[in-house]
Amino acid sequence: MATSSTHVPSAAAASGLRGAIAELWQDKAAAVGLVIILLLILMAVFAPLIAPYDPAAQAITARLKPPVWMARGTWDHLLGTDNLGRDVLSRIIWGARATLTIGAVTCLLAATLGTLVGLWAGFAGGRTDTLLMRIVDIQVSFPGIFLILLVVAMLGPGIWTLVAVLSMTNWMVYARLIRGIVSSTRQTPYVEAAELIGCKPGRVIFRHILPNLVSPLLTLAILEFTNIVLAEAAVSFLGFGVQPPATSWGLDVASGRDYLFIAWWLVTFPGLTIVATVLSINLFANWLRVTADPEERERRFARAEAAKRRRRTRGANA
């Protein structure tokens, strides 16, 4: 997401940081979203300082203790303990590292690869297009779990193996989307004009076509982020990804599932954290999408002005 906005010399960036903040403040939900994202990142970075316990420290005799506000809860474990007596809060704080790293890096890698392939296919057209899109088709029809098995057998399980595998199984959707947009954008007069006056393909692609892709890319990347978090959980639970004593939110949800009837806090808190993360990114990205798109910005500005005027007239009438 961050990379896409640096490609776009949008008005927000041009008018400086202060302008951007002011503009963001107009959209309260997006501002809150950004704050939560920043807090989560800080939490992941400073996990050793914040977490009250070692996330792997187990106390078998103190397992499945409920959160502090429930009957058997204690202040020792704010959000209770899990099935091996580990502190749920500490595990959420440490789990942020794996989840955010895998989610963000995978989205970034998959989006970059997919976008490059899509741009190339859509821009070049003809035989190149056919060839690249067939590669995409083959990759889509290849069973993901099989690929995961193959790669894990070669590289061994771990966070970076997981990032590599999930990127490899998720880039195709970007390529298809981008290729579609590029081939239609190529026909627009301003792109044809740019080519006519002798712009090099690189300039045409990155100056004239890419900005049109920012908003669909953002939307897609956010949807995919959720998918990645869930995929990571499933894959880690089977033993392909994050290995104990390290943990991730998804893995905690997956391991706590069996205890849902008697210890809801094992699934609920990491689950809520995932929801909060995805929702915050969504709210912020929605604002970013509008900000990055000149036409949308125009519309938003017009709506804001109209609302202001309505308020003024109502005030005058009263």
Partner: peptide, 25 residues
Amino acid sequence: IEAVAGYWAETGLQVTTDIQEFSQY
């Protein structure tokens, strides 16, 4: 497995856990 690995880590050994997919296991 996780609990035993935890106990073993207390003895001073450098314990790593490798939970494998069933066919690999």
